[in-house]
Amino acid sequence: MNESQLILTIVAAIGLGTPLIFATVGETITERAGILNLGVQGMMLIGAVSGFWATFHTGSLLLGVIVAMIAGAALSAVHAFTSITLRVNQIVSGLALTLFGTGLASFLGRAGSNPLVGNPSRKVFEPLFSGAITEIAVVGPLLFGHDILVYTAIAVAGGASYYLFNTRMGLSLRAVGEDPASAESAGVSVARVRYIHVMVGGSLAGLGGAYFSLVLVPTWQDDPIGAAGWIAIALVILSSWRPWRAVVAAYLFGAAERFQFTLQTLGEPWSAVPSTLLAMLPFVLAIAAMIVLTSGKRARLLGAPAALGIPYFREQR
């Protein structure tokens, strides 16, 4: 592998990691409120299709992003309602959300007289910077060769981190996820905090989905995001519920995904490795990381929100 190949790989890893950052930070915020939302895959797909649709019909990328976020939030509101108000099993509700979102996204892509499927996006996010600054050796492509959403993702992670650990709402959020009864008796409205953050999480998942359909694979197809939603859920654990670590973890997985293509370009004997085997790499990495990180005593140090997945009844006796 020569230097330019390495740079190309890293740049691609950053691109592939960006939607994972959005979705992982979103799910981190959701889980910090004590709600486990396994509907990330569904919300991302809905975000992908609705963002693509909005941009396809209006030609506006900004509108595409906004619509994707609203769609993700709307879908997560269903989960919020079932898990917070109705207090149903969050795993079941989240899985249902994924099944529903996957089906709906596929349907929306094929519906109507002029279906989206097979069509390229009218517009695609272009690199933010141009000219001399991107020509600088190494630094140029690595730091300045990306579209605006790449920088947004980093800002979102940084903002989420500050929000969690330095603001009043962030404190309420952490308390609600750790010990809702204590938070409630300190005057925090558990239900409100949970609703808000589940929907913020949903909107970020939607945004992550739109990154696929408007940047990475800008032609509508049934399944543009692969298993990114599931990877994001694993990344939340991998980053131990800390937004900054999610950035590192997401880029790492971007690199793992990119690795299969890089290997193909290296020639014999590397290109002889079956690509299907390499496509498994991110998932093997995810499973291995989870086993190592969550085994035995380490799990306790990870800092999973103590009330994660547990419905809260105020008047329970």
Partner: peptide, 16 residues
């Protein structure tokens, strides 16, 4: 009704 993972001061600030 104290959140075990938070500091004393954070528990004071919670919901204040």
């Amino acid at each position: 009704r104290l959140v075990p993972n938070l500091t004393v001061a954070e528990n004071f600030a919670l919901g204040h």
